[in-house]
Amino acid sequence: MLTHTAYLHSAKRARLQRLRGRVGLGLVAGLSVLAGMTDAIGLLAMGDFVSFMSGNTTRLAAAISQADLALVVRLALAIVGFVVGNALGVMLVRSFKRKAWPVLLIVASLLTGAGLWPVPTALPALLTAILAMGMINAVVEQVNGLPIGLTYVTGALSRFGRGLGRWLLGERRNGWRVQLVPWTGMLLGAALGAWLQQWLGLMALIGSGALASVLALVCAFIPRAWQLGYLPR
């Protein structure tokens, strides 16, 4: 049997784990809002997805079948840019001694620069925003052992659906409901981004940059031990 002291320590660890999970999910929600917001702005202002590479892959295949060379090059660059952004995000997190807030400040700078880019030559702005969206995936990879996707929600909906199926079969596993957090964040962010784009056009990306700066400030105050649990290993 546990002694009273051991019981108190165990209860304290459980409370801290729950709190760490809630903080992590809050950060996931904020980053998903950022991803949805930026994706909607990019799609409406430039005609291409900024974080939804599944959509760009399907469009790339269609462009290849139609021999649309200009669109093939544009979408291929978008996909490569997203992959490079993910790789760069991991490298930057490591170079900053596994701190996420400097990466988010770089993301904020990239998004602000993209928002200030002249509209007639929007491809550099598109690629800059895509690079930034790839980078944010290195900020949170998991929360309390649960895999989390930030810039794509197909996996989240799939995990939620499978968890719902198990629940209906009587299995009581934890964690599947939290997959709705990134989906909800992306939905709300996309609605906000679409509204901003209607008023500001491509300059709405400056709003994405401002949100990334706020998230960087939030990350700076999250205990380092907790952040290490969110980051890629």
Rank of each mutant, 00 (worst) to 15 (best):
S51E: 02
A45C: 07
W183A: 15
D39W: 01
A6K: 12
A45P: 06
A40M: 11
R177K: 15
D48Q: 15
F82R: 02
I79W: 07
G36N: 09
L211W: 10
L164F: 13
N137W: 05
F52C: 00
A220Y: 10
R13E: 14
C219E: 12
G149Y: 13
C219G: 00
T5M: 08
A14N: 10
R20G: 14
L188C: 14
R22K: 06
L88K: 01
L2Q: 14
G209D: 07
L92Y: 11
G145M: 06
L127S: 11
M186S: 01
P102N: 09
A220L: 11
N86S: 12
A6W: 08
L69Y: 15
W195K: 08
R166S: 08
R13A: 15
L31P: 09
F96N: 05
A114E: 03
A125I: 05
L150I: 15
F160G: 00
A100L: 08
L123Q: 12
L180D: 05
A6V: 05
R172F: 09
P223I: 13
S65K: 05
A225L: 04
G161R: 03
A67S: 11
M37C: 09
R159M: 03
A216G: 02
F82A: 04
L92W: 11
A62F: 11
L44A: 10
L228G: 14
M135S: 05
L44S: 06
G30F: 04
L69K: 10
V143I: 04
G161N: 01
L34I: 14
G36H: 10
A204K: 08
A132M: 04
M91W: 15
L71S: 10
G201A: 03
V93K: 01
I106R: 01
G26Y: 12
L88H: 00
F82V: 09
Y230S: 03
R177F: 14
G21L: 02
W226P: 01
Q179D: 06
V140S: 00
W199E: 12
R15N: 10
L25E: 11
G207N: 11
G89H: 11
G85D: 07
Q66A: 15
Q66F: 04
V33G: 03
W176I: 04
L180F: 09
W176T: 07
L126K: 13
I206W: 12
I222S: 05
F160N: 01
R159V: 02
G89R: 10
G165E: 11
G165I: 14
L123W: 12
D48F: 15
A29H: 08
G185L: 12
P120T: 12
L187E: 03
G229V: 07
L217I: 14
G189H: 10
V23D: 02
A114V: 12
L211S: 06
T5P: 00
G36D: 04
A225V: 13
L105C: 11
L123E: 14
R233W: 01
W195T: 13
A61Q: 04
W167T: 10
